[in-house]
Computed example of a mutant assay.
Amino acid sequence: MTAGPARPTCFLHMGPPKTGSSTISHFVEGNIEELERRGYFVPRMPSLKGRPQNGHGIFANVALNELEVDGTLKPGATLWTELEEVAANGEKHIVLTNEAFAFSLREPAKVDAILTFFERHGYPVTVIAYIRDQPSSLNSSYVQTQKRLYARQTFDEFVEEAAERGRVDPWRLLEHIIDNPRVTLSVGSFEKAMKSGLEADFARRIGLPDDAGLKPVPEVRNPNAGIKTVYAAQEILRQTTGTLQKMPSYKKIYRRFRKHFETLGWTDDAYVGLDQERYAQIREFYRDSNERFAKRFLNADWADLAPDRTYKRNVFDPERASQEELDEIKAVVDEIVTLIRRAQRAESKGGRLKFFKKVKKKAAAKLGRRKKKAPGAAARVA
């Protein structure tokens, strides 16, 4: 459904993950002047630097730190102050977009804090969510956890954990939004929106006419992680301990790993953890839930929104790889593992990792001239 623009509204796009959230954030950021001219306020995040790096997720993450139970700001609040000023004026719609809200809106305390804040200023809240067929969503999400060195688990373990936690079940994902009288839910099929134009679909959901004139923005997104990237990441995780993303030096280490898998061309051969049997099992597990949701909120059959697909498992097999490929992967793994171990030792003593030139020089010597130019144009959303 599309909320009309007559009354100032907060449009809160929550993703969830792997449903084109980066595309939408980039589209909004690229049209921020036109949106402002039409009466929409979009927070400008200093970290974006021309591209949404984190979108508006920080507002979701700090909601309980900055908002009192009555919707007022806590002493020392720094991020929600800008929204307070705009909402107090009550003249502009507010657009917040980031998949971090998918996690925050599963916490009753955060849901209440955010809604109470906007209600205090007379703002209704429309939550926008796109729902995706689970097998492809799970495959994409798993690749994300591996390439970012998040989780030591197999694809099947990831699928089972997602089922237990309700990460991709629409009813559980939206349990605090569905039938909540304080919220308007605007939900769409990711597959259908991609076919018709995701950006245009989102624009309609925030109340803009089809002739609004928002410009298309060149697709910018993280490149897909191919089978070599996933294999190398799993080797790095196998040879290290601890929660890597909680390390102070994690971002530097990940950027170093990412530079390798992009420049070496490891993004070209997509990882697929699904075979046809596993695909069918996942579809069957969510079938009843999906059908009920599709009929109620999308006025369609789930099978029409997300027709059956054919999958063939595609993972890196070291037994079939050439010695050159194995040496290339080993050089990257050795360098990143060394950096992680040095960082952990330094950080345990209160210090920080320093990227010693000799580490990079040694790795470069191992990699030799095998690096090739990173792919230029980014692919469409997986």
Rank of each mutant, 00 (worst) to 15 (best):
K110M: 09
L353Q: 10
D288L: 01
A200W: 11
H176M: 02
T243K: 07
E157G: 13
G242F: 02
E325V: 08
F101E: 03
Q276K: 08
R7W: 09
K246H: 04
R287W: 11
T154F: 07
S322V: 03
K215R: 11
E68W: 04
L174W: 10
I282G: 14
Q245P: 00
S25G: 13
I131T: 13
A343C: 03
A113Y: 12
E191K: 11
P16H: 08
P318K: 04
P8K: 03
L115S: 13
N98W: 00
V187D: 09
K251R: 11
L198E: 10
N290M: 09
E319R: 02
A331P: 07
D201G: 02
F101H: 04
R106K: 10
S189R: 08
S22H: 08
R278E: 15
K252W: 02
F103N: 08
E82A: 10
A363E: 12
S348K: 05
V125R: 10
V337W: 05
V127D: 06
T126N: 12
E34I: 08
E161Y: 05
E119N: 13
S21C: 08
N65C: 10
E161D: 15
L298N: 10
E219T: 15
D210I: 06
N31M: 01
I206W: 08
K358T: 15
E82G: 05
